[in-house]
Amino acid sequence: MDVLTHSLGSEGVRMIVGLIGVIALVSVNALFLIWMERKVAAHMQLRPGPMEVGPHGAIQTVCDAVKLMGKELITPEEVDKPIYYLAPIVVFLPVLLTFLVIPFSQTMVIKDLNVGIILILAFSSLSVLAILMAGWSSKNKYSVFGAIRSVAQNIAYEIPLLITVMSVILMVGSFKLTDIVVAQSRYWFILVQPLAFILYIICATAETNRTPFDLPEAESELVAGFHTEYSGMRFALFFLAEYTNMFIVSAVATVLFLGGWHGPILPGAIWFLLKVYALIFLIMWFRWTFPRVRFDQLVTFAWKILIPLSFVNLLLTALALKIF
């Protein structure tokens, strides 16, 4: 350890340990989330869900992952190969990078950047590029539909997302995530920004392509949407990215609205994870309750309701800050 610290500097060691930690967290988290999703869905539908492998099917997702790894990677003949190969990687890498700035507790943050929140928003927007690449290169009409829908949807929902985030940032005056959490040591921002929280959750659901906004992969319309032609591990990467994205948007919501690591008795990191998983449960709850919206309604909803409301919220916040 000393040698490492000597040659890389403490910052370098921190980065390497963080990277390993993130990769471990991402995969374990995804496995857990998939299991959780199945269990949540099952119990909402009066059935037990996976029960066979491990206690209450806990190892089921590990088995599925192994199965997916063992599967043949089928490449349809007509696809645009370089882009087709690249898309699963492009969807996954930015997701990993965003973990760089997420503060699990006061000290558990790999690199506390000054522009933390902007970095997260920038990288999470990259996933739409990957979806476009995947859909476009697949040369499948359903995939193209999924890709086009995804782009329109992400553009429409990025705006209200940014604006709602802005209203929190106005209150703190910093893009740094730790600063935002520290500012909530007395009260959580959800208490003063309830509308922003609701808007953020809606936009986040849309950003992560979850029901009721899962149009890019709308199963009953587009078969499997943009990843129709993907199989095996490539498909698994899309899957992994989806669940990790869910984690990230929930983590950001925790930081922005739910007071991050703040909480009594338990250590900060555990509080943080608890809040994140509670939000993820909320998003899963949406998925197993609502029908899917139609594409044009989705865009209308974003432009006619979400964006005006988020602007109103931003204005009110600015006014309130000016007055008090």
């Binding site: 949540v40 099952a42 119990h43 909402m44 539908q45 009066l46 059935r47 037990p48 709850w285 949406f286 197993w288 309750t289 609502f290």
Partner: peptide, 19 residues
């Protein structure tokens, strides 16, 4: 109406399974 729907599913979430 969305909240009402969510109330239904969470109520069933706590019910015993039937399968």
């Amino acid at each position: 109406s969305l909240l009402a729907g969510m109330a239904v599913t969470i109520r069933y979430f706590t019910k015993p399974i039937v399968t």
